[in-house]
């Protein structure tokens, strides 16, 4: 009966995952391997193709109420929602403007992704019964880790899918962007290439995401015990899931848990990049939601 309960939990979370996250790993890998049946993604590999790629995307405005107070940079983004002209100033060269527009569009997608992760978190049994302040803390500290994990299925060693799989942006192009933009994605590629060797499927990913959200060691939590209890149940469910989906992969559960340490370092480095951008990019602003998440994070 206990195993049946753990399987039911796994199914419940998987349904929430499918409901909230539009691009699954299965679909992303199909696109990347050319087996999706759809048209191949548009490839962005230089400034010219970036400009052409803009035509692929519906414009989406970035709210920027605090433009004059905080001038930061984009959060990392698992996709590109829209390239907008909202922040394209009249000064500077075309490449600079394009880069800014691109990273602002990353912000828009990040904000949407935070909303998706929040809805997923709310579907974890017991999560909404936690102290509301603790729910906020779990999201604040967990959400960038989740976004990084969710980028992995979109990536291979050569680049990443963006814009819900409609576009493939090459790693070399991302690397060629001006500092520190050009440095921001490399650590995520390095992590993702290693993470992808674990060959998790969407079911495995679902439970791993829930485990990350339910981390009882986030700074400032008021009531750790119920969080740890919830996490323990999800951990059991994950362990069972991995035994079923990867019977021959010994130590996969342990290997996966070790990734949580790497993730925290990547988030710390990411926050450092944001601080650098804050100094260098005077035309950038950070979405208020992303400001909330990044402020006093690490």
């Amino acid at each position: 009966p206990e195993a049946a309960d753990l399987r039911a939990l796994s199914r419940h979370l998987y349904e929430a995952y499918l409901k909230n996250f539009p691009l699954t790993k299965a679909k992303a890998r199909a696109i990347l391997s050319g087996k999706a049946g759809d048209k191949a993604p548009f490839v962005i590999h230089d400034m010219k193709s970036l400009m052409e790629g803009e035509q692929f995307i519906n414009c989406r405005q970035i709210p920027c109420q605090e433009h004059h107070q905080q001038q930061l940079a984009p959060a990392l983004a698992p996709g590109l929602a829209g390239l907008t002209e909202a922040h394209c100033g009249s000064d500077g060269n075309i490449s600079d403007e394009l880069e800014l527009r691109f990273f602002n569009s990353c912000q828009s997608r990040s904000v949407e992704a935070v909303r998706e992760v929040t809805e997923f978190a709310k579907s974890i049994p017991g999560f909404i019964d936690l102290d509301l302040n603790d729910q906020v803390t779990l999201l604040k500290y967990g959400v960038i880790e989740i976004l990084i994990i969710m980028m992995a299925p979109l990536m291979n060693k050569d680049g990443t899918l963006i814009s819900y799989g409609q576009i493939f942006m090459t790693r070399e192009f991302l690397k060629s962007l001006r500092k520190p933009f050009g440095q921001m994605m490399e650590p995520k590629f390095e992590f993702s290439v290693k993470f992808n060797t674990l060959e998790l499927d969407d079911n495995d990913m679902t439970l791993f995401l829930a485990v990350i959200i339910l981390s009882g060691d986030r700074p400032g939590l008021l009531n750790v015990k119920p969080i740890e209890r919830l996490q323990e149940t999800v951990l059991h469910s994950l362990e069972l899931q991995l035994k079923i989906s990867h019977p021959d992969s010994l130590q996969l559960f342990a290997k996966l848990l070790q990734k949580m340490t790497d993730l925290r370092q990547i988030v710390t480095d990411h926050v450092h990049f944001i601080q650098l951008l804050r100094k260098r990019e005077v035309d950038m602003c950070l979405h208020p939601l992303l400001q909330e998440i990044m402020k006093d994070l690490y």
Binding site: V111, L132, V136, K140, E292
Partner: peptide, 20 residues
């Protein structure tokens, strides 16, 4: 609570992206 106003909103409502 003020420091994380939008996160609170997201947790308590089904805030649409447009609202953000």
């Amino acid at each position: 609570k003020e420091k994380h106003k939008i996160l609170h909103q997201l947790l308590q409502n089904n805030t649409s992206p447009g609202d953000l």
